[in-house]
């Protein structure tokens, strides 16, 4: 019976149309790379805590907004990510525990992939999380849900992508920053000083 069944199975696949296995490998590597990136995205970035009041002034003046939008100053400030409650209110130049690496709007997929990979391998970095435009936009919508004027003034394309990360020791932040701020695809880097329970990157 076993043998007979085996023959049936062989017959069942006898019309195999065939496929170039090299192409299959290529396609799998592309899709697999995407799975890895998505996994990184899910790494951290907890939801905005209910009831947390946005501290607009804390980040005003950082000037991270995309060029063509030219929104009013108040909207520009409202679009800035907000320091997490367990971080100091204002960004710091030195001694940061966490950082947000904002990508330029013209950053290519290749630049983004390379940057993420390099950061993940950097021995000074403890944790990495990616925040897409969509995520940044959704957070903005949650934060300003009661203010339709703000919501109407921006769309998802106005928000930058960013990579949120935590350093192993704050002493390494200055060297880290100067090294990466000129990297391909990076627009700016904002450091924050947080306690260990803050979300990676130090912003909500």
């Amino acid at each position: 019976m076993e043998r007979n069944l085996r023959e049936h199975f062989e017959q069942a696949v006898s019309d195999d149309p065939g496929f170039a296995l090299g192409d299959l490998a290529q396609a799998a590597m592309v899709e697999g790379g995407q799975i890895r990136r998505n996994r990184r995205t899910r790494l951290a970035v907890p939801a905005v805590a209910a009831g947390v009041v946005a501290v607009i002034g804390a980040v005003a003046g950082l000037n991270l907004l995309p060029e063509p939008a030219e929104p009013q100053a108040t909207i520009a400030a409202a679009m800035m990510p907000v320091s997490a409650p367990s971080c100091q209110e204002k960004p710091v130049e030195t001694g940061a525990t966490d950082a947000a690496v904002f990508l330029g709007h013209g950053t290519t997929d290749r630049q983004r992939t390379r940057l993420l990979a390099t950061l993940e391998d950097d021995p000074r970095i403890a944790a990495v999380a990616f925040e897409s435009r969509e995520e940044a936009y959704q957070k903005f919508r949650i934060r300003w849900a009661k203010d339709p004027d703000f919501l109407a003034a921006v769309d998802v394309g106005s928000f930058p992508e960013s990579i949120r990360l935590r350093l192993k020791t704050p002493e390494q932040y200055t060297a880290f920053r100067s090294e990466y701020v000129t990297a391909d695809g990076v627009n700016s880097i904002v450091g924050r000083r947080c306690s260990a329970d803050a979300p990676v990157g130090g912003t909500l």
């Binding site: 060029e67 330029g104 390099t118 391998d121 090294e179 000129t182 391909d184 695809g185 627009n187 700016s188």
Partner: peptide, 18 residues
């Protein structure tokens, strides 16, 4: 903010990527 501030990677970065 402008896109013009993007320069080539620092030496360390290049080493890592290679």
């Amino acid at each position: 903010m402008t896109e013009t501030g993007i320069a080539t990677p620092a030496g360390v970065l290049t080493g890592w990527s290679a």
